[in-house]
Nucleic acid binder design. Structure first.
Lengths: 351, 351
DNA sequence: TTGTACGCGTTATCAA
DNA sequence: TTGATAACGCGTACAA
């Protein structure tokens, strides 16, 4: 029953050689139409399924790619995986999915396992705890096709597909400036992570472009969680009234949610007293009482672009290393306040 | 560089046989401690990674399982996959993830691909369009370890892990009854799908247990989307006042959301005029103005249980076919209304 | 058009 | 303790 049918079994059944059966299956035109028919017929009858394990052993190609993500449940990565899956499906690759669970140790184990499986290439989004980029460097040196996505190890000679963090942060800050706000603060993420750094940079650039004051006391590190957002916002609200910002750019939506709670707890209203914008378009962003203006990340597209780049890297030995940024979309809702012109114009645009 | 190191290369380097190297790597105790050391040292130096493709060819075991899900982005399946991944990680299996995108044709192609990869077993959740259970029967007949999860093909001799649909539906209906409601309607899902059928059955049983009237005009098919929920609720609201239900059990949360809109549009309040409960604990359920009482499905647990069952089926040739149901949790919020006793008691319990 | 020989990287088996 | 051989299923290269 479970004993898998082989070319040889079919061959024996028909009194031909295994080679003939192989040809019938893979190169139908290279075999006599009559034997072809007989072969295919019995192949079907016996339930033949080509053994890719054996095929891979001889061809050194598995038509398999490994994906390492740090977090399965958060809505961003499933959507990325869907994009990867779509490309893989269209190009006849299979996907090994592994979860590093934000542990760099587990991440390395995953990569080793994928290497043992002889995947043709690896897509990886770094665990937050990752420090060891020496590991990545070694990996790159082995020549395995490797593409980072979203969370990238930079300058190690591997391609990278990510969201346009800096430009997006700058753009949403500019949106506040265009609405007339001049006293704008930033709740920032960890400066050890590229997204934390880039979003802060974009924020600062926007202020510089508009010749607005860049005040250190208006840059508070909140981290990426609600709790940190709440605490950080508290600090801003506890400033003397004359030093209080009029608008806030949060590093992401959860931080913004925390900040919103703090603002409410302080008896202030949004956007009347303080305007706020987020980043990531969390599913809750549009559902809260004062819907949050934010940056939508094209997760699906990150997946398709990364998978596409990886497969080109696999199939094209002289494919160049690239740093690809995909554009985001500013989603304008109520939390930033709005001018009359805003109502007349369209309510989202891309960066 | 990319040329992978083989046992033989290490062997040649040291002037021993490939067999000795193999033993050193896999059975350290069966080799002289001195040669062991030499072998491991050069293996490390050359960056040797065992070739699982070759291993699989001889052992007929790939330590790989295939997962077929109908929908990657919805929050339920990522959580299931996370559970599967956790078990796979602990047992050293790798996961092939494939997406049928609710197409039974694509589902079959996925399964064929997985068979070609010689996965040790398959976990599958049926596409909604699936009709061809003859295909599943054939698959089972080949003896391939196979476990269905969430959406199951029943009575075909394969194990199945799913949520306790009928009991949960009955339980949440009973909750309404306990609160004193007697005029209760059901917005049902397609009766062609097991979850649609089972949830209706549970609803009816609860009414029967309480000797309440089971009125056909209070069973409206809404399907699983908001729009259907809205339309179905409209029908109930358009009944003569004396025939209008006082409470509604929706087949899932989206249908409930649609119904809620309809109730609002009709100028009625929740739960004051009409109480409503859902099923699935959609992320929005707790965020809407009148938070929705609903059934939370333990997605992660569905994943771990299904993966565990599959691996037992793989590794234990006389493992029995089982239909496993995992319990749900009733999440009590405002939409069902509440009595004073309710406030005193705990606000969730398991079925 | 069809068949034979060999090798892909590994391990089980038996012999030394 | 170590090595030689064969086999896993398939495809390339060559021969008939």
């Amino acid at each position: 029953l479970n004993s898998n049918v082989t070319l040889k079994q079919i061959a024996d059944e028909l009194g031909v050689s295994a080679m003939t059966v192989s040809r019938a299956v893979n190169h139908p035109d290279k075999v006599d139409s009559k034997t072809l028919k007989r072969v295919l017929e019995t192949a079907h009858r016996l339930g033949y399924t080509p053994n890719h394990v054996a095929k891979s052993l001889v061809s050194s190609r598995t038509y398999t790619i490994g994906v390492v993500i740090p977090e399965i449940s958060h809505s961003f990565f499933p959507e990325v995986v869907r994009g990867i899956e779509e490309i893989a499906y269209n190009t006849n690759y299979q996907l090994f999915l592994t979860n590093s669970a934000e542990s760099s140790e587990r991440e390395q184990k995953a990569v080793d396992a994928l290497r043992s499986k002889r995947v043709d290439g690896i897509l990886i989004s770094c665990a937050q705890t990752t420090t060891a980029d020496t590991y990545y460097r070694q990996l790159v040196k082995t020549g395995w096709p490797l593409v980072f996505f979203d969370r990238c190890a930079e300058n190690i000679g591997a391609s990278c597909v990510s969201v346009n963090d800096k430009a997006s942060s700058r753009r949403i800050t500019q949106h506040l400036i265009n609405l007339g706000y001049t006293r704008i603060a930033h709740l920032s993420g960890s400066q050890k992570l590229s997204i934390g750094k880039k979003r802060l940079e974009g924020f600062i650039e926007a202020l510089q472009d508009a010749d607005l004051a860049i005040r250190p006391d208006w840059q508070v590190e909140s981290g990426f969680q609600e709790k940190g957002g709440y605490e950080a916002m508290k600090k801003l609200l506890n400033l003397p009234l004359k030093d209080r910002p009029r608008a806030v750019v949060a590093v992401n939506d959860p931080a913004a949610f925390g900040a919103i709670d703090a603002i409410r707890d302080h008896g202030l209203s949004i956007p009347g007293d303080i305007a706020i914008v987020g980043f990531s378009d969390d599913i809750r962003a549009k559902l809260i009482p004062c819907p949050l203006t934010t940056v939508r990340q094209p997760a699906y597209q990150v997946g398709t672009v990364a998978a596409d780049k990886l497969i080109r890297t696999i199939e094209n030995s002289d494919e160049q290393v690239e740093y690809i940024e995909v554009g985001t979309e500013i989603i304008i809702r109520a939390s930033c306040g709005s001018t009359s012109e805003m109502h007349a114009s369209k309510h989202s645009y891309t960066v």
